[in-house]
């Protein structure tokens, strides 16, 4: 589904990603961990098509196509979804209006008929239950005045409505209380299908108790320095990143 080969990217001459290699197949859940500033969000943003990052080498193939050549909206319509680490507040843009417009863009792209207001509301009702989200939030402007946790939950709610093929969750767990974490995780699990994949960026092994990853990768200084199964996450929790970094420093 997604193949990242030797991806190098940076901003204004600053190198951030320095040769990422990652392959994600349908049905898989991958977790990416790594210290602050190692480039996790940059990877997520580059995959979603954020402008301002220079891609200096490498390629990203998504469903057989060159992902890096697509506009961000085309990526989204093709099923790439990024749950933002810091969702932006957009005053004056009604949440319901925004999400309906987004869903209909995705549907149009997939050759499906657009939903009218009533059909859309039915979808929304169902997905809100999934995330136990307060319906009031949808009457407000996008993310405006939402609490940190509400913003994160709202990202996953959007994911539930848009039903992406590849979901990238950038620290969706940070800022969630224990109950919210459980709700969000169970929501994410319910959205998992044989033909979809998930890339979770997180600092905490706790999330991985709820969403069990098939693979865990450690990103350090712009490269994946170690991959393993979920045991790697437990090991990191116990020992921190230091031992890995030290091992990394010693030539094998």
């Amino acid at each position: 589904m997604l193949e990242i080969r030797n991806l190098h990217a940076g901003v204004e001459g600053k190198k951030i990603l320095k040769g990422i290699e990652l392959v994600i197949r349908p049905g898989e859940v991958h977790a990416v961990m790594g210290p602050n500033g190692s480039g996790k969000s940059t990877l997520a943003q580059v995959l979603a098509g954020r402008e301002g990052y220079e891609i200096t080498a490498g390629e990203v193939i998504y469903k057989g196509k060159n992902l890096l050549e697509m506009d961000p909206e085309v990526r989204a319509r093709e099923g790439v979804f990024l749950a933002f680490q810091y969702p932006v507040e957009i005053p004056g843009v009604n949440s319901t209006y925004f999400l309906k417009a987004a869903l209909n863009e995705v549907r149009k792209h997939q050759g499906l008929p657009e939903l009218d207001a009533i059909e859309f509301l039915a979808v929304v009702k169902q997905k809100m239950q999934l995330l136990e989200l307060n319906q009031d939030l949808l009457r407000r402007s996008v993310n405006e005045g939402f609490s940190g946790g509400e913003k994160k939950r709202n990202e996953i709610f959007q994911m539930a409505v848009l039903e992406p093929k590849l979901a990238i969750l950038d620290e969706t767990d940070s800022g969630l209380d224990i109950d919210a974490l459980r709700i969000v995780a169970s929501g994410v699990n319910k959205l998992k299908r044989a033909d979809t994949a998930q890339l979770l960026i997180t600092h905490y092994q706790r999330l991985l108790n709820y969403i069990v990853p098939d693979y865990v990768h450690v990103l350090f200084d712009g490269r994946i320095v170690r991959s393993g199964d979920r045991k790697l996450a437990l090991e990191l929790e116990e020992k921190g990143y230091d031992w890995l970094i030290k091992e990394e420093a010693q030539p094998a």
């Binding site: 004056g92 987004a102 863009e105 402007s141």
Partner: peptide, 22 residues
Amino acid sequence: SIFYLRARGIGLDTARTILIHA
């Protein structure tokens, strides 16, 4: 904000119109 809207599938022109309208 433009990027956020685009990342949800809304085209650049529409994203701009939505924000100006807001």
